[in-house]
């Protein structure tokens, strides 16, 4: 495990080194602070996605569910003037309900989660537009503190929170019976079932976790923008999957690691920031990001095969 983290950390280091030598402004505390404060929502979503992927599922609805949660937050804060804490609770609940729907429908009705969550992607986005009347709800300063960097630490509360969730997620995955069963089910569901374990609660739980993470990320996203944007986070599912995959999560299930996913997010974000600073055009940025994702996965699979042979 540590070896894997070291590998990802050195890739991240290498990327930083390249940008540091090619642009003047990259190697500065401000750059790193801005990367850190930019990632919390993606980190949370990618953690949820990692759990889902480990159990051989996939959640394509994360971007829409995030948008719906932030829309719900904005709606209750602005239209109903609810206290912040209640509005946040409702936003989290929204994410949880979407996750529950994804999980229960795909697991109980045995429909591939790809399809169920593809449907949810549309449903949640449609609901977002209904809630916001397709217009950005300006929330104002009440929630800005979540994403405002601490003047001394340079990090926002959201980033600290995301780091905490990373640690917690890693702990759950590697040290609890829940995590062990998740990995076992992803490795060989049939064998786990025949070992007398009811796999359904675990499968549903990963979607619940993912939904809750989307809800949380929705709150953070809204705080970043000070508003709820009905088109927020579209395409986020792909970034989240990319982050998981760069971190070595297998789409075939059974393999995944929260800290590695965190590194995956950092690699993507650093790449984006660095390329932007270099003045690379958007099309080229996309192209390079794609190449990095594929390179990461190919090298990971080669490494896997190599360790298999030995």
């Amino acid at each position: 495990m540590l070896k894997q983290h070291a590998g990802l950390a050195s890739v991240l280091g290498l990327i930083c080194l390249i940008f540091s030598t090619t642009t003047e402004h990259f190697f500065q505390l401000t750059t790193f602070a801005s990367i850190a404060n930019q990632v919390p929502d993606l980190v949370l979503v990618a953690i949820g996605m990692t759990f889902v992927l480990i159990l051989k599922g996939i959640d394509l609805s994360v971007g829409s569910v995030l948008a719906l949660s932030s829309a719900v937050l904005g709606y209750f804060l602005v239209v109903h003037a609810l206290p912040l804490i209640f509005a946040i609770a409702i936003a989290l609940l929204t994410g949880l309900i979407c996750g529950a729907a994804n999980g229960i429908i795909s697991v109980k009705a045995r429909i591939p989660s790809f399809i169920v969550t593809l449907g949810m992607l549309e449903v949640a986005r449609g609901l977002t537009k209904l809630v916001t009347s397709s217009q950005t709800i300006y929330i104002g300063t009440t929630i800005e503190f979540i994403s405002t960097p601490h003047p001394m630490l340079r990090f926002s509360p959201a980033f600290i929170f995301a780091i905490t969730v990373v640690m917690l997620g890693q702990l759950i995955l590697t040290r609890t019976t829940f995590g062990r069963y998740c990995i076992a089910i992803g490795t060989n569901e049939e064998a786990v079932k025949l070992s007398g374990i009811n796999v359904i609660p675990y499968q549903v739980s990963t979607f619940l976790i993912c939904g809750l993470m989307c809800g949380t990320a929705g709150v953070i996203h809204a705080s970043k923008l000070s508003s709820a944007d009905p088109n927020a986070a579209s395409g986020l599912e792909l970034s989240a999957i990319a982050a998981c995959v760069i971190g070595g999560t297998s789409l075939m299930g059974g393999r995944g690691n929260i800290i590695s996913t965190f590194f995956g997010v950092l690699i993507i974000a650093t790449l984006q920031t660095g390329l932007a600073q270099m003045g690379v055009s958007d099309p080229l940025k996309q192209l390079i990001t794609g190449v990095v994702i594929i390179t990461a996965v190919v090298s990971d699979s080669l490494r896997q095969r190599w360790t298999h042979l030995n």
Binding site: R180, Y181, I183, N188, E190
Partner: peptide, 16 residues
Amino acid sequence: KSGVMLNLDIKSNLTI
């Protein structure tokens, strides 16, 4: 196919 989890370690298989 269903007796053991080939890609997990001996320990996890034994205590599942």
